[in-house]
Design a protein around this nucleic acid. Sequence first.
DNA 1: TGCACGATGAAC
DNA 2: TTCATCGTGCAC
Length: 202
Amino acid sequence: MRPRSKPAAEPVPDSAVPLLKRLDREFYDRDTQLVARELLGNYLVRVSGGVERIGRIVEVEAYLGPHDLAAHSARGRTERTKIMFGPPGHAYVYLIYGMHCCLNVVTEPEGQAAAVLIRAVEPIKGIEDKTSGPGLLCRAMQIDRRLNGHDLLSDDFYVAAGPGHPPLRIARRPRIGVDYAGHWARRLLRFYIRGNPFVSRA
DNA sequence: TGCACGATGAAC
DNA sequence: TTCATCGTGCAC
């Protein structure tokens, strides 16, 4: 195979990034709050246009299922939310406010419409723009609705295990922007790495 | 077929 | 606090 005639880009492996081991299906096929907490510190990897972008997940929110009035699945299975009802380990990407995309990972067994919203990542590799906020991180990592339903065990879009150390100090807070959800708005379902400067709101 | 309303971000 | 901007879900 001949070398590609692409201009000398950047694709040199960054020695600061540990070996990336992709999370398996079983990781996502568990209790949503547990998955949410354990996603913190792991690497979100997106490969597009020959460029690998990596962000360390520092802030997430858990959406527990149809009984959770803040979850999109609370209004039942619709064209938009059908991915949430599908098998775990897939991306649920939707457009919000007519202009921003938000990324979720689907959790729990098929039929249980739960997911974890990725709210912020810390830039690790190949990222130029701001990543503190669900819409911003999608823009910075080239994630859009074409990835809705995408399998997160694929080669171009996945989550890989972080270093696992040092131990994370995790904070819990109410979720953002769900005041319409009654008492569910007060549940402590937002998790973030305490003190991390890339968290969108402390 | 029409319309109200966001799991946001940026500006003022 | 206001506003940009448009797909979705549900009312009619």
